[in-house]
Nucleic acid binder design. Structure first.
Length: 724
DNA sequence: CTTTCGGGATTTTTT
DNA sequence: ATCCCGAAAG
């Protein structure tokens, strides 16, 4: 059977075990994706299952897309019919389908984090909750956590005893009320409402149970309770549930993921088959051993034996720079060398960091040295102001009761509906319990305001009537136009295009972004315009940045460690490996969070196939100022016999050392040096001549003649020479 | 009603 | 440093 060809013993077993619950514990690089796709192919080709009867849940849309592609190469077009997607996408489609039973507005919109915060601010205002104590984010995260654990607003109330919980309960109730009024769902609602739908409507559940005879869940260590519960609901009858995961790569607990799901799987299904994939096909022996040394320092884990037949490979390079700029410069110099001497392509190389802000120095370096790069995430495309604005117009067109979107665009570009008018609208909306859109209609219809209600000036009535007119016309047009054309109409009719053009500084970029959005919309042409628009908006809400990673060829990839999960690269640079960055400040006081940070570090290391660079900067700017940083504690767990570069990152190399990495030769010259005295003349390879201001090992302060001005440098790496 | 200016808070990671 | 929000000027 050729589907089994080229698979090792465990992999074969995983593919052939088709009946009943199956847990695959897959180490990094153990051919997990391969097993999943081959298993699906096996179910179809050997067991004769229709692809429609298989549901595969992945962590990102990209993973789903890749799965479908692999299936196609494996078995042709039949493979395309497997339903593969994220939990959120699956749930969204279920709710869209079962809106009636689920009691959800058919044209519901999905609120992202920004919308949620806007909404929560209103909630707190209405409830008179002090935002100093109860920050919108804080309340939202409590609600999100509750929803992830199957706790709806009512249940939350029953369980809340503390003062804080009682306040959050109030906010929770009001938050849900407003969401419903706006016909909106947040990310967690997609999951929770689907769970509740299945729980309370047996006939609906049965429909899905009988359709999907097999369920696969990838990245199981990063699922939360609702997700796991939905998976259980669907497979309740036949128990054909296959989950794949790696507890060592669990890095989303902050999103309420619970790696305990892996452990409880065995309790829930005592007869589950458990298969371990422990042969690594990705990394060199050195990289795997280094990663293994880092992860074994965690206390909450199960010991296991990862191994590889791959060659030993090069040592892991550890390097220390003075500041992020130098770190980037050094990295790019090495990228250049890898390309010229070792014949790597730019696509082979990834730069990984803990927080998005760290990409900046690398980005600037890339621009300076002309190295093409692709930045993933950061200011997310769909969060950019102009994009979000247009999205909100589209959402209002689809569902005018969505207050959050409506309030965002009601005076954009400015059309004379100011704060005062807005206040009055909100007042009407609040006192009558109707959406803003309805409030505007009321205001415009009634020639005279009824007693007890706010008086609008004739001017503001005029402005509102105009606005209402534009929106209503757009809603009409949307009935028989594609998303692409609707965007065009929005840009023209609302004066948004002119508004963008006003800003000539960034106007060009913004227009480009809008055109990009429009071209994305072009692909959405379904059976009806309404469906097309709602499919487009849904995809906008549910795509992740990582989904677009391959778009720009021949470039190095700049990604966060979280985004790197599931990816692999021949060459990996992990930068900014300092205490405070990784482990991050906010996890410092919680041992469990530190363990998660370590897993994050481990995930990064195990992305590397052939080369791994671990770099850090001595000084890092923070809130304007600049502060020294200690090396990340995780670096200490990389065995020295596997590394080159600084043999011991914890000792600043003031003492003469020999360096093996060799890519810093010109600097190595300065590894041995006498002390400096204030007033001495020195020369620096990039800053030119200067005079020593002070000398406090390991730092030296120099006043340069040129533009560089006064600099504080790290002595052991600064390319300095004394001038007589 | 709109724009601009200054003070204050602020950032982990993302479906 | 940068962004967001509220207050005062235009």
């Amino acid at each position: 059977m050729d589907i089994l060809q080229g698979l090792n013993q465990q992999q074969k077993q995983a593919v052939e075990t088709v009946d009943g619950p199956l847990l695959i514990v897959a180490g990094p690089g153990s051919g997990k994706t391969r097993v999943i796709t081959h298993r699906i192919a096996y179910l179809i080709a050997v067991c004769g299952l229709s692809p429609y009867r298989i549901l595969a849940v992945t962590f990102t849309n990209k993973a789903a897309r890749e799965m479908r592609e692999r299936l196609r190469t494996l078995m042709g077009l039949t493979g395309e019919n497997v339903n593969a997607g994220t939990f959120h996408a699956f749930c969204s489609s279920v709710l869209r389908q079962e809106y009636d039973t689920a009691k959800i507005d058919r044209s519901f919109v999905i609120y992202d984090q920004g919308d949620q915060i806007d909404l929560m601010k209103r909630v707190l205002e209405i409830e008179g909750i002090e935002t100093k104590q109860f920050a919108p984010r804080f309340v939202l995260s409590a609600i999100s956590s509750a929803k992830s654990q199957l706790i709806d607003a009512e249940l939350f109330g029953e369980q809340s005893t503390s003062y804080v919980d009682k306040i959050i309960h109030r906010a929770y109730l009001r938050y849900q009320e407003l969401l419903t009024r706006h016909s909106a769902l947040d990310f967690d609602d997609l999951l929770l409402r689907t769970y509740l739908l299945f729980r309370d409507n047996k006939h609906v559940l049965e429909k899905y149970q009988s359709r999907y005879l097999h369920l696969l869940v990838d990245e199981f260590q990063d699922t939360n309770l609702v997700q796991y519960s939905i998976a259980q609901q669907i497979t309740e009858a036949h128990k054909n549930i296959c989950v794949v995961g790696d507890p060592d790569q669990s890095i989303y607990s902050w999103r309420n993921a619970d790696m305990g799901n892996i452990l409880s799987f065995r309790d829930t299904y005592p007869n589950a088959t458990i298969i371990r994939l422990e042969e690594n096909y990705r990394s060199t022996k050195t990289i795997l051993a280094a990663a293994q040394s880092v992860i074994t320092a965690n206390s909450q884990r199960i010991e296991r034996d990862l191994h590889t037949e791959n060659p030993t490979g090069k040592r892991v390079v550890i390097h220390e720079s003075y500041n992020p700029e130098e770190e980037a410069q050094h990295l790019l110099r090495e990228v250049d060398r890898l390309r010229k001497e070792d014949h790597y392509k730019l696509d082979d190389i990834a730069v990984m960091y803990r927080v998005n802000a760290q990409s900046r120095a690398v980005e600037e370096g890339c621009l300076k040295y002309g190295i093409p790069y692709q930045l993933i995430g950061g200011l997310r495309f769909y969060q950019r102001k102009e994009i979000k604005d247009i999205i909100c117009y589209l959402r209002v067109i689809q569902n005018p009761y969505d207050d959050i979107s409506l309030l965002r665009i009601i005076n954009l570009p400015t059309r004379g509906i100011g704060q005062r008018t807005l206040d009055q609208l909100v007042y009407i909306s609040q006192s009558k319990g109707v959406p803003i859109y309805t409030a505007i209609q009321m205001a415009c219809q009634e020639a005279t305001s009824p007693p007890g209600y706010p008086l609008f000036t004739s001017r503001s009535i005029g402005s509102m009537t105009k606005f209402l007119d534009i929106i209503n016309k757009l809603i009409k047009e949307a009935e028989h136009n594609s998303p692409y054309d609707i965007i065009e109409m929005v840009l023209d009719r609302t004066g948004f295009r002119a508004y963008i053009n006003l800003d000539n500084e960034q106007g060009g970029d913004r227009l480009d972004n809008l055109l990009e959005l429009q071209s994305t919309a072009f692909e959405f042409q379904y059976t009806s315009p309404q469906e097309s628009l709602s499919a487009f908006l849904e995809s906008v809400a549910l795509v992740s940045d990582i989904d677009s990673i391959d778009e720009k060829k021949e470039s190095i990839k700049l990604i966060t460690l979280h985004q790197a999960k599931g990816l692999e690269f021949p060459v990996v640079f992990m930068i900014g490996l300092e205490e405070g960055m990784i482990p991050h400040f906010r996890s410092l006081d919680d041992p469990e969070q530190i363990e998660e940070e370590r897993r994050l570090f481990y995930v990064g290391m195990t992305r590397a196939m052939q080369r791994l660079y671990l770099t850090r900067a001595f000084r890092r700017s923070f809130r304007g100022g600049t502060e020294p940083g200690d090396p990340s504690r995780f670096l200490a767990d990389v065995p020295q016999d596997l590394t080159s570069g600084l043999t011991n990152p914890f000792e600043h190399a003031i003492l003469p050392t020999t360096r093996e990495s060799g890519f810093d030769d010109e600097r190595a010259v300065n590894m041995t040096h006498e002390s400096f005295v204030a007033g001495e003349k020195v020369s620096h390879t990039s800053f030119g001549e200067g005079i020593v201001v002070s000398y406090t090992p390991p730092e030296i302060t120099i006043a340069f003649k040129g533009e560089a001005g006064i600099k504080r440098l790290l002595l052991n790496i600064a390319p300095l020479e004394k001038i007589k």
